[in-house]
Design a protein around this nucleic acid. Sequence first.
DNA 1: TTGTACAGGGAAAAAATTGTCACTATGATA
DNA 2: TATCATAGTGACAATTTTTTCCCTGTACAA
Lengths: 124, 124
Amino acid sequence: MRVRKIPLNLNCGLDLVAEVLYGKWKIRLLWFIREGFQRPSELQRKIPEASRRVLHLQLNELEAHGLVSKVIYPEVPPRVEYSLTEFGQTLIPVITLLGQWGDEHEERLREVIGESESEKTHLL
Amino acid sequence: MRVRKIPLNLNCGLDLVAEVLYGKWKIRLLWFIREGFQRPSELQRKIPEASRRVLHLQLNELEAHGLVSKVIYPEVPPRVEYSLTEFGQTLIPVITLLGQWGDEHEERLREVIGESESEKTHLL
DNA sequence: TTGTACAGGGAAAAAATTGTCACTATGATA
DNA sequence: TATCATAGTGACAATTTTTTCCCTGTACAA
């Protein structure tokens, strides 16, 4: 397991949220789990751009942070199901608001993100 | 400038928000700017854990994304002031909610984050 | 004269995150 | 029999992000 060389700083609420939500796929995982896609393989199919590995890693972290819980069915082939904990549920309104903001400003966001991306490439 | 080898995916609102907020210090920068700390050196003092360099980089990105605007005063020594654009202001409620969630669950978050951190170190 | 604050940038290294590939094991299916 | 789906792990590589270090140039203060 990785060891952090630069210590975290957890001063305020914002730092704490960041700690549990900061991860390329975490928010999306929470979202899809809430939508009922609970098995790792389903989530994988919903997020094909992510590697299986990272999804597992991030699911583990979400679990360690108490946002999701995991049930392992003693079957073969193995079956695992994640679901939001009560704690995890409390995040839903927050994620919803994030998504709303993104949707509301979609057009504009695509513009500005596109621009700064193309800057990168043309400055090769 | 960096060129991205793994393409962004910007499907939904959540991806778009992530694109502009994903950066270790960005949310905090927005927050402090809104609180009236507008000069780079002030921001640096508010966020001493970050290197001066990254703050500049992330401020540039926030500017490129239209969330903050920058005024350069033709003085010596140089003076620069950032402020939220109207667009940037619309993010404030979102950030506020994030922070509120973090504050509300502070105790619990510190526990779970602490645990998973110490796991890391004892598994050296 | 020396040192400081100020805003910023380039190069390169370090750190952190994410991805790839190969492997475990087992039952069902073709 | 060979193949697939399932969940997961270890070793390692690639990518991205952040840090470190050194540099510019000028006014002001000690």
